[in-house]
Design a protein around this nucleic acid. Structure first.
Length: 416
RNA sequence: GUGAGUGUAGCUCAAUUGGUUAGAGCACUGGACUGUGGAUCCAGAGGUUGGGGGUUCGAAACCCCUCACUCACCCCA
């Protein structure tokens, strides 16, 4: 098939057939988030490249190899946002939102861009639903966020999910853990695969993820981060888990849940579904207590999560809702003019109407109306115009009558 | 970035393994039925077999290059 122009690799069109699902998801998100006191915020799709280098982290994979970065005509280095958190933090500082009495709870829905190789559940332009809370140190809010995510997913009808939680410690306790882990893993150098030997340097926590049995076996004896948390982080984590218990949520403590963004401190969590394939996270997030300060803002902590819209959508099944639409069929030019007039009035009465301007047989138009799932067909022909009435047919049972505009409206008012 | 798999009509797939004019179902258009839908039957339209090159008397099939998609690694939503 010859294609003049096609969508860019890793991007796709969301077609009308699918869009109902998107609208439902967006509606549910807004509804739930507002129930929890969040308000929508929207920031630009591109930002100074520096924002992500500082925020997402210069050592993260996202920044190193996945950013859509370009130079604009003024010579500035700009980047299409690969994630949302740095933008929100920037907006808060820039607009001094922390000086307002309103709670610092924000949500956002929009596209993100990462130069990844596409695969199942992974795209170059994808969409995230994102929430962030600032200035709440208490582990209670960590638990509230997880509970909200769980509530949202239940409302959406997402099944077979698992909640994973962890603490990655803070800048005080994490380095000492990593040191011990590296030492321990170095002792097992002869059994680890080449991949893991590389991870030993770059990201030793990833060794826990290896699929090779020898590596898994060795990793079982490695220390867990949850055993190395400092007093503050340890208490935060146990209270967080306590609140989750109080909510009656089932969750798994997953000490190898590290997440790829540099900024996380203390709590991290993910909600996964095995139905998604290799990219199994529907939602992931955590606490980032230092980002605001590092951007030169006030010392305000933050916590949030991002949910992958395409991934959620793939777990939902489309529900075909019946379309309460009227199809206007006409025969001849005089009838067309009359039809345009009638349809205009019906639309003002709040009735979805479709009038197609092709001259076709009545049979053809009825057939078409049937295919489109129209609830009624309005029939306008010479006979009707002479009599000053119009035919209206209910497609579900074929019942048909004649009437003027008032009669038609009354007929439409009857149950289908 | 690395690796594997797949590209045939709008969609799902055939083509006896290299053989003549690339087929079918669904969908589409028209007709049977002149102004009354769904069922049935008939007909029509729709293809540079992803693209380019090569091997061959002959390529959708084999080889090379390229592009796209899919899946996995890495990483993440």
């Amino acid at each position: 098939m010859k294609k003049a122009v096609s969508a860019i690799k890793g991007t796709k069109d969301i077609l009308p057939q699918e869009i109902r699902l998107w609208q439902r998801l967006e509606g549910e998100c807004k509804h739930v988030f507002e129930l929890y006191g969040y308000r929508e915020i929207r920031t630009p799709v591109f930002e100074a490249t520096e924002l992500f280098e500082k925020g997402t982290g210069i050592t993260s994979d996202v920044v190193i190899k996945e950013m859509y970065t370009f130079t604009d005509k003024g010579g500035r280095s700009l980047t299409l946002r690969p994630e949302y958190t740095p933008s929100v933090v920037r907006a808060i500082i820039e607009n001094r939102l922390y000086l307002q009495p309103e709670p610092l709870r924000f949500y956002f829905i929009g596209p993100m861009f990462r130069y990844d190789k596409p695969q199942k559940g992974r795209f170059r332009q994808f969409h995230q639903v994102d929430i962030e809370v600032f200035d709440e140190k208490e582990p209670a809010v960590d638990a509230e966020i997880v509970e909200m995510a769980d509530f949202l997913l239940k409302r959406l009808g997402v099944k077979d999910i698992k909640i994973l939680v962890n603490s990655v410690g803070c800048r005080k306790c994490r380095p000492s853990y990593l040191k011990v882990l590296r030492e321990k893993a170095s002792g097992a150098k002869d059994v680890l695969c080449p991949d893991c030997l590389r991870k030993l340097e770059s990201n030793p926590l990833r060794i826990f993820d290896c699929k090779i049995e020898a590596c898994r076996e060795a990793a079982r004896s490695f220390p867990k981060i949850t055993d190395f948390l400092c007093a503050e982080c340890g208490e935060h984590f146990s209270r967080f888990c306590g609140y989750l218990d109080a909510f009656g949520l089932t969750y798994t403590i997953e000490p190898k849940l590290v997440r790829g963004l540099d900024y996380y401190t203390k709590t991290t969590f993910e909600i996964v579904s095995r139905r998604l394939g290799a990219q199994d996270a529907v939602l992931g997030g955590g606490r980032y207590d230092d980002m605001m300060k590092e951007f030169g803002g006030p010392d305000i902590c933050g916590i949030g999560f991002a949910m992958g819209v395409e991934r959620i959508i793939s777990l939902l099944s489309a529900v075909e809702e019946p379309r309460k639409m009227l199809f206007a069929a006409f025969l001849g030019q005089a009838a067309l003019s009359k039809g345009m007039e009638l349809v205009r009035e019906l639309r003002r009465q709040g009735i979805e109407c479709l009038l197609e301007y092709k001259e076709r047989s009545l049979k053809n138009q009825l057939s078409r109306a049937n295919k489109l799932g129209a609830a009624w067909v309005l029939i306008i022909g010479e006979n009707e115009i002479k009599k000053g009435v119009y035919g209206i047919k209910r497609m579900s049972d074929g019942v048909q009558m004649e009437g003027d505009l008032k009669g038609i409206l009354a007929f439409i008012g009857q149950p289908l």
